Computed example of a mutant assay.
Amino acid sequence: MSDQLSGNPAAGPSSRERVPYEPITQRRPFVLPDGARVAVWTIVNIENWLPQNPMPRTVLPPPMGQPLLPDVPNWCWHEYGMRVGFWRFLEVLRSRNLRATLALNGTACTEYPAACRAALDAGWEFMGHGLVQKPMHRVEDQADAIRQTVEAIRAFTGKPPRGWESPGLTETAETIDLLAEAGIEYVADWVLDDQPVPIRTRSGEMVSVPYTVEINDVVMSAIQQQPSDEIFRRGRDQFDQLYKEGATIPRVMAISIHPYLTGVPHRIKYLEALYDHILSHPGVAMCTGEEILDIYKAQGATRQAN
């Protein structure tokens, strides 16, 4: 079957057509550099929450259950992350000689230029994360929003992003096609494997680099409201299992963090503990998303048309 798809853009092909089922034990081998067992990549998410709009997430329910705008306490909850929490991330990663992938709303380049500049100076990869923090289903013109995001990152960094993570991992039936047409090479939205896998689009092939909804502080801290040390406990257990399996079939582990969640004082030491646990093991490749993409592509592991 060809890696290109056609059909009604509004309906689009099914997800199963885009990513045919292929067990991890029955595919072409994926190999990491120097025989590494696990590739670990960190995704730092910075977002533009519009003060005049309802907040994407909340830490405080509205008084008497009635939504109120502007939502000052919940907007400030997020804003703390950009003023304080982000800089804790920067130091945690810098002190361990680690680089992250910065998933950012395109408008964050102008709303939070100091944070973006610090990430650029630290050598982080920049990945598109929508124009503002809004589900793709609520974006009136997805193609234009993707174009504006790519151009904002290109203008700030000097090169367009190669990767994309949709706000809330949301995609309509045609989002993946629009991303491919905009030059995006990999996505983090399709959380369905421990290795990179190809996704068929109407203009060629996209790659899914394994992201995470489990080692993700939105899920742990904002939704499940787990204790402060959950990112360490769950992250350690995730890594240990992937490291054991990686002796025969290499894996990818993502760590997704947000400055307003893991960047707060009572959680940051547990992120440090997780990195120190991971770094105490040989055979680990600390990567960015685009580095994992390049490893995958260099092996010729992408699916070719029959």
Rank of each mutant, 00 (worst) to 15 (best):
A143N: 11
V31N: 04
I153A: 09
G65S: 02
Y260V: 02
L68V: 15
I199G: 03
W164K: 01
Q148I: 03
W75N: 13
W41M: 06
G283R: 00
P20H: 07
T288N: 07
C116F: 14
G85H: 09
W77N: 13
E151H: 09
D3G: 07
P63I: 09
R37A: 13
A305E: 06
G81D: 12
S208V: 12
I268E: 04
V31L: 08
Y80F: 08
A188K: 04
D276G: 03
G283Q: 05
P282M: 02
D193E: 11
P227C: 08
V139T: 12
E91I: 02
T175S: 13
S221W: 04
P61Q: 14
H277E: 01
D177A: 04
S228M: 08
T25M: 09
M206F: 13
P56D: 09
K297P: 00
V284A: 05
A36L: 04
S203C: 14
V72Y: 08
I268M: 15
W41G: 11
M82G: 13
L271H: 02
P20A: 03
N74F: 10
W164R: 00
E171V: 01
S2E: 06
L271W: 01
N45Q: 12
D3V: 14
A39D: 08
P56H: 12
Y211N: 14
K269C: 03
R303D: 11
R138W: 02
A247K: 14
L69R: 08
M127G: 06
Q4E: 13
F156S: 01
S95I: 04
M220K: 04
T170G: 01
F89S: 05
C76H: 06
